[in-house]
Amino acid sequence: MVCEAQRKSQGKDKDMAIPVKLEVFEGPLDLLLHLIDKNKVDIYDIPIVEITQQYMDYIRQMETEDMNVMSEFLVMAATLIDIKCRMLLPKEVNEDGEEEDPRAELVQKLLEYKMFKFMSYELRDRQVDAEKNFYRGQHLPKEVAAYRQPVDYGELIGDMNLARLNEIFKALLKRQVDKIDPIRSNYGNIEKDEVDMDERSLFVEAYAQSHRRFSFRRLLEQQDSRMQIIVTFLVILELMKTGKITISQENIFDDIMIESNMCVSA
């Protein structure tokens, strides 16, 4: 009977409880600005103890299951407690000999948030004002939309005649000719010269086996294109690296002589 009476009493107290609706804030900085405005304190001289206590009271009354939102408020709560502890310690001095205020960074964030918040209010008011404006769409009768102003060809041509038109035509042609580069216009199309490296290597090896000792200049003079000369030069370097040929030069400006070290194939 006693338990039943207690349950009835608790149920009655619950029914008589006064519902309290908390204000919804967009974030911890929004809540801090509300507390500063509510207590009418200077944002540059925040009473950190009083504001922290009110902030923690609000945190305890919050009813939210969103951990992301709750974590933001808890991080700010930890920041306020840290500032509160640093306020109790001896003040730190920077390199210029000035005392550092632990609240300075928080004050800067609050000022920036307050500025952006007021800017959002201004944009919202402009949007509301813009929604009150209505514009009438273009609506023209078909006859007016289809009307085209007549062209007077006599007035358009004026004193123009065939001789004048011929002069204008020649001037346009001359202007086009002047735009042509006299040097580049004589260039032909650049075609890609493909040379097979393996084929050149076989050619040089066969040439070396048949001549045994020959001039490097004479070998290059037998090539048909610049690309063949480059590839032949690379082949000579590769054969010299592998020891298949030996290169010699008696004097600094003399012709380079190439001597084959390969056995003559039967």
Rank of each mutant, 00 (worst) to 15 (best):
C3N: 11
A5D: 08
R7M: 15
K8T: 14
D13Q: 04
D15V: 10
K21W: 05
D30P: 14
D30Y: 04
L31W: 09
L33Y: 02
L35P: 10
D37A: 10
N39Y: 15
V41I: 15
I43W: 13
I46T: 13
P47E: 09
Q54G: 10
D57P: 02
I59A: 07
R60T: 15
Q61Y: 13
E63Y: 06
M70N: 13
V75S: 14
I81C: 10
D82V: 12
D82I: 13
I83E: 09
M87S: 08
L89V: 11
K91M: 09
E92Y: 01
G97N: 08
E99L: 06
K109Q: 14
L110A: 04
E112L: 02
E112P: 00
Y113T: 01
M115Q: 01
M115Y: 00
F116A: 12
F118P: 00
M119S: 04
S120R: 13
E122W: 01
R126E: 11
V128A: 12
F134P: 00
L140Q: 08
E143K: 09
R148S: 03
E155S: 01
L156Y: 01
D159S: 04
M160H: 00
R164A: 05
R164W: 00
K170G: 04
A171P: 00
L172N: 05
P182A: 07
S185N: 04
N189V: 14
N189D: 03
K192I: 15
E194S: 10
V195Y: 05
L202V: 07
E205D: 01
Q209M: 12
H211Q: 14
F216G: 14
R218H: 07
L219W: 06
L219A: 12
Q222L: 13
Q222Y: 08
Q223K: 14
R226F: 10
I229P: 03
I230T: 15
V231G: 06
I245A: 03
E250L: 03
E250P: 05
C263S: 09
V264M: 10
S265Y: 03
